[in-house]
């Protein structure tokens, strides 16, 4: 069964992004919200942890933090809250890496 892995911690402070990446399997999605959005920035060293995974990021949390969408790693999808709800529905379960 597929899982939506939600991460809300900066990868430069906590290991949650790395854990989500370690647990994500084919068919899963990693959704970055709150301070985890920094993990999606291409130039940051943490973005490598997510390579090869299906990654979405919450646009409102990116905007709040002044991160422009053109700075994101290739293949990262930007979603709004409606898209967040759709991801929850599309996967079989949700794991929040608090």
């Amino acid at each position: 069964m597929s899982i939506l892995h939600i991460v809300n911690k900066s990868p430069y402070e906590k290991n949650s992004v790395a854990m989500a990446a370690g647990y994500a399997k084919e068919g899963d999605t990693v959704l970055l919200i709150e301070d985890a959005v920094y993990a999606a920035v291409k130039a940051g060293s943490a973005s490598a942890k997510l390579s090869g995974l299906d990654v979405s990021v919450l646009g409102s949390d990116l905007a709040a933090r002044g991160v422009a969408e053109d700075k994101l790693a290739d293949g990262v999808n930007v979603v709004d809250y409606a898209g967040f709800v759709d991801l929850v529905e599309a996967k079989d379960s949700v794991q929040s890496w608090l």
Partner: peptide, 11 residues
């Protein structure tokens, strides 16, 4: 453990 987690309905 990732496989075990994937068998669950709710976390």
């Amino acid at each position: 453990l990732a496989d075990v987690m994937a068998e669950h309905d709710m976390m």
